[in-house]
Nucleic acid binder design. Structure first.
Lengths: 143, 143
DNA sequence: AATAAAATATGATAAAAATCATATTTAAGA
DNA sequence: TCTTAAATATGATTTTTATCATATTTTATT
């Protein structure tokens, strides 16, 4: 469903949502270790997210990555789309160019409702919500 | 969700479910063309499926691939597992080793019910059912 | 028996994704 | 202003997945 890179992006972003703020920036090495992703790799991903203003960063000493007040409203789907693009998650199970109720692939009726629901949820769930969820112990920050 | 190979496997198998039988065998070239997959590639996939008795084949002149009476009861999940293995589809969105209600990843609550439902359906839907669905015009054989 | 038409087995190549490495830029602090 | 700690930009390498090619085996037909 997601590429590896997107999984890492979500992990890192959630880590920041829980552990950073404008005056508690986090350095790459300190993100890479707890989420168990190679430093150079996660660096590249975070840079891409930062460029798209989904997360924030400042250079130089005392710099690092963080989730700003604005970033808190970023939705999981935005992270996904920033890394994987929009087609991957929306493409049909069998990769028909056009698969919809008018021209459904043979698996369409088995999955489309549920899949649509999942996509909508990813589109409406913010980093802030998930951070609260994690902080309250209802789910765990993933390794 | 599925690898390319698995998508092709499903397409080819459904093609056979609709267009073959013990005495209407289909040759590789005649499968590759309509489902739009390179001949040598689909050959390899069909051979793997045949080895696991999910589809049937005979060598030599008048030979080819086909869906036997037994094969009609094969479930989509069996095709998927034969090519992708079982872990891919069952692994959690963020690839935690253990992600369940006791130790849920941060996205677990957003997807697990629907995902489980989809997996169950893939496990209970047979080639025969889908072939009927296609023949009755309710869905299309995918390109 | 010989021929030819098919799958099968095996491995080679190409493309994409994942991973790693490093030189450059920026900004804080001495 | 110099040094240093950080992100940024760029590109190289490795691994995985997808794709292609071909020699071998089997079996129906002549």
């Amino acid at each position: 469903m997601f590429s590896n890179s997107t999984k890492y992006a979500i992990k890192a972003t959630l880590y920041l949502a829980v552990n950073s703020s404008e005056n508690e920036k986090v350095v790459i090495s300190d993100i890479a270790k707890p989420i168990n992703v190679p430093k150079a790799y996660i660096a590249k991903i975070l840079q891409a997210l930062s460029k798209k203003n989904l997360i924030s960063s400042t250079k130089g000493p005392k710099g690092g990555f963080y989730i700003s007040e604005e970033n808190k409203q970023v939705k999981i789907a935005e992270i996904v789309n920033a890394i994987d693009g929009e087609t991957r998650i929306n493409s049909c199970l069998l990769s028909l160019k056009e698969c919809d109720s008018g021209n459904p692939c043979s698996l369409h009726h088995l999955v489309y409702k549920e899949k649509q629901l999942i996509i909508e949820r990813l589109g409406s769930t913010s980093l802030e919500e998930l951070a609260k969820h994690i902080k309250s112990g209802k789910s765990v920050l993933p390794l």
